[in-house]
Design a binder for these strands. Structure first.
Lengths: 135, 135
DNA sequence: GTGTTTGCAAAGTGTTTGCAATTTA
DNA sequence: TAAATTGCAAACACTTTGCAAACAC
């Protein structure tokens, strides 16, 4: 199965029409490698690769992908929104330069988490490990 | 010691001049209760209390307070910046309505955190427990 | 064909900045 | 009086929206 077919298949199973733009952006994202990126980075990458996409479409597409469970948003600071192609349960290292690295949740465990207040339930636990230069 | 004197003292020990604006905003914040708020909320609160401060000054002041270690920023989503008067080591519950509640770090422990990559060191670990309505 | 998607530019948020006027020490 | 701080409005960065044209099925 070609890479294009794989993306086409991914979109179809997510209920998204395989438009030219979605195929192009999906081709950059769903290639087997986990990656972290912002809308701007993906837009730049697409244009450098010769694909003409508007910023608005990149944003729309990323939100559609996220809504379809193909991407996850990662909140690391107030400015840009970061997306992650790894949608499984995991956490992150945040490097001093702003880049991210996944930490598989499997090897981690949080002890002592208090019960959430009456009427609420835990939806997700996000752990962000902020890193600096070694001492 | 009056509340005003307490704020004045707090500012002085942080190396910040006790200007009218800082005293007013500090008075709203450093009253013994831990609170979470955004710049806009604090600005509204100040004006409702009859104090005229510009948005720019609220932002400047919050950043000065943060730089002086009197406040902490809490990242919960890409939109607004949240500030926290609790500067000790702790984590957060994020309710469905966007409000926050502190979780003392003392009772918590994270197991299985991998070593940070060569050349970097852990600066801080932030845990955000996202809550929804109970099932 | 018919409903969906795109692109553009304009509007919207939240936040920062430049600079003259004001205030503090 | 000298240096720090404020307020305003304009500038900013990122993101969303409205709507006609283009496209997928």
């Amino acid at each position: 199965m070609s890479q294009t077919d794989h993306v086409r298949e991914t979109l179809k199973s997510a209920g998204l029409r395989p438009t030219r733009q979605r195929l192009a952006l999906g081709g950059l994202l769903f290639n087997g490698h986990d990656r972290h990126f912002t809308a701007e980075q993906l837009h730049d990458e697409a244009r450098r690769g010769g694909f003409k996409v508007s910023v608005a479409t990149v944003y729309n597409t990323l939100h559609q992908f996220t809504g379809a469970g193909l991407l996850r948003e990662v909140v690391v600071d107030g400015s840009k929104t970061h997306f992650d192609t790894n949608t499984s349960n995991h956490h992150h290292f945040l490097f001093a330069d702003g880049s991210l690295m996944d930490i598989p949740a499997g090897q981690m465990q949080v002890l002592g988490l208090p019960e959430p207040p009456e009427g609420s339930a835990v939806v997700r636990v996000d752990i962000l490990v902020r890193l600096g230069r070694a001492a």
